[in-house]
Design a binder for these strands. Structure first.
Length: 275
DNA sequence: AACACATCCAACCGCGCGGTA
DNA sequence: TTACCGCGCGGTTGGATGTGT
């Protein structure tokens, strides 16, 4: 990327002086939004040329999809979304756009960033490859059940049926859900009631409300510190009952969470070699 | 307060696929 | 059949911001 000057508002090269790169300005955003609202979001090269923006069609498309699109949601990946990402990635791997279809308003770019910054970081801390069976099993048998527990604990925003629907969200193939007694099995809270379905974004009407972007601070208060949360849960991980968001942001960035995960990881995998 | 380090995320790139002439 | 073009995807980068010392 040697020919790429990110902070310059001037063209990178005299040769391609008509092409702007780097951060978008508010004016450019406004132009693009207005143009797309009139002409639609197709034929991006045409849009780039006709709008007067000195951007490539690619750049316009990316800006629109990842930032300017009206239904785009950014920040605060919810517990449900974290679960979906883990689950769908376990099925499809780095098929970010496909995964994004099941997370309304989320872009493939954001999911990819989430995976790289949070999940891969955990793998790095655990000194195992993110694609290794060991890491995948840890995800499935430890992290995802814990996520489900916490989702169930959020009685106001997550439901039994919702979580179950997430577990079977893949339209094409069944998800390998642990049976009772197996590692990773989770007993869903039957007192919750369904409020939303996790479907591909294309199947969700404009008026349907995916869960509002609840803040992670909400999650902290509701899931971990809220009344009725029994840390000695169904999966038998209660001895690490402080792994939740105590003073942190979420399960991936909270140091206490990290150490819980590492403790749990080591506890459960003592027979493995980290190398 | 200043610096170093870590993390996040917007935006780029190259590549490959599908449609069309 | 082939060449070209536009688009979408996954990988990568580096500036901005946050956190620790």
């Amino acid at each position: 990327m040697e020919d790429y000057e990110r902070n310059s508002n001037s063209p990178t090269h005299e040769d391609d002086s008509d092409v702007r790169k780097g951060p978008w300005t508010e004016k450019e955003d406004a132009i693009l939004v207005n143009f797309v609202s009139v002409h639609g979001d197709a034929r991006w090269n045409h849009i780039a040329r006709s709008s007067g923006l000195k951007r490539t069609g690619k750049s316009c498309r990316l800006r629109w999809l990842n930032y300017l699109r009206p239904d785009v949601r950014r920040g605060n990946i919810t517990l449900e979304e974290q679960f979906m990402i883990l689950k769908l990635h376990s099925l499809w791997g780095n098929r970010w756009s496909k995964i994004a279809q099941y997370l309304p308003g989320r872009t493939d770019n954001e999911i990819k960033n989430y995976w790289r910054t949070r999940v891969q970081k955990q793998a790095k801390h655990l000194r195992c490859d993110v694609n290794s069976n060991l890491f995948k099993e840890t995800m499935r048998n430890v992290w995802m059940p814990r996520l489900v527990e916490r989702i169930n604990a959020q009685s106001s925003s997550a439901t039994c049926e919702q979580v179950e629907s997430m577990m079977i969200a893949d339209p094409g193939q069944p998800i390998d859900v642990p049976s009772p007694g197996e590692p990773g099995y989770v007993q869903f809270n039957p007192h919750h009631h369904n409020q939303q379905q996790f479907l591909p974004a294309t199947e969700i009407s404009a008026t349907s409300s995916n869960s509002p972007a609840e803040t992670l601070s909400d999650v902290q208060g509701g899931a971990v510190n809220g009344s009725g949360y029994d840390p000695v849960g169904q999966t038998g991980f209660g001895e690490f009952n402080d792994w939740g968001c105590v003073g942190g942001n979420n399960m991936w960035t909270n140091d206490e969470s990290l150490w819980f995960l590492q403790d749990q990881f080591c506890h459960e995998t003592t027979s493995y070699s980290y190398n």
